[in-house]
Simulated assay, not measured.
Amino acid sequence: MSASIATPDLEEVTHLSAAPLEPWQVVVWNDPVNLMSYVVRVFRTYFGYSQERATQLMLAVHHDGHAIVATGPRETMEVHAQAMHDYGLWATVRKAKA
């Protein structure tokens, strides 16, 4: 007993397009544990920010409760958030607002 297997028509053309890459953000949140100088050092060491930029971001964390420290593809931002956790900072990943 043999069964017939349907095969696609070879003339059929399929158009594939990649979904647009939506930017994601790493948000570092304020905490009562880490010193401000330590947070600046983490931003400089990990992200390579200048002293001035790292200080601006740290002050945003301190005064506003959080700061967006990186934006990019989701997978990369998840790696950055994990690195912040490894440094003892509280970080989350969220979709960038349009």
Rank of each mutant, 00 (worst) to 15 (best):
Y38C: 00
V27E: 07
V28H: 01
D86F: 05
Y87G: 07
S2M: 05
Y49R: 09
R44H: 08
G72F: 03
A3E: 08
Y49L: 14
L21H: 13
L16W: 15
L35C: 06
Q82T: 15
V93W: 00
S50L: 09
E22T: 15
H85Q: 13
F43E: 02
M84H: 06
A18I: 12
W29E: 13
R41S: 12
Y87R: 10
V26S: 03
V33K: 11
A98L: 02
H63E: 11
H15A: 10
Q51A: 15
R74I: 00
Y46D: 08
H66I: 00
L10H: 08
F43C: 04
L21F: 11
E22A: 12
Y87P: 01
E12L: 14
L10P: 04
T14S: 07
D9E: 07
V93R: 00
V79N: 06
H15P: 00
T71W: 00
L57K: 10
L59G: 03
H63Y: 10
V26Y: 01
T55D: 02
P8V: 12
W24A: 06
M58R: 04
D31R: 11
D9M: 03
E22N: 07
M77R: 02
S50T: 15
F47H: 11
K95N: 03
G88I: 12
S4I: 09
A54P: 01
T14R: 07
K97P: 01
H66D: 04
K97F: 04
D64Q: 15
I5S: 06
W90C: 05
S2E: 08
S2W: 01
T55Y: 05
P20C: 08
A81P: 00
Y38S: 04
G72W: 01
V33W: 06
L21M: 12
L21Y: 06
D86W: 05
V40M: 10
T92V: 04
W90Y: 10
Q82L: 15
R53V: 14
H80K: 10
H63P: 00
P23V: 08
N30H: 14
A67C: 03
T76Q: 05
L10G: 13
L89Q: 04
A18S: 14
A6D: 11
A60Q: 14
T55H: 10
T14M: 06
N34I: 07
V33T: 15
D31P: 03
L57A: 09
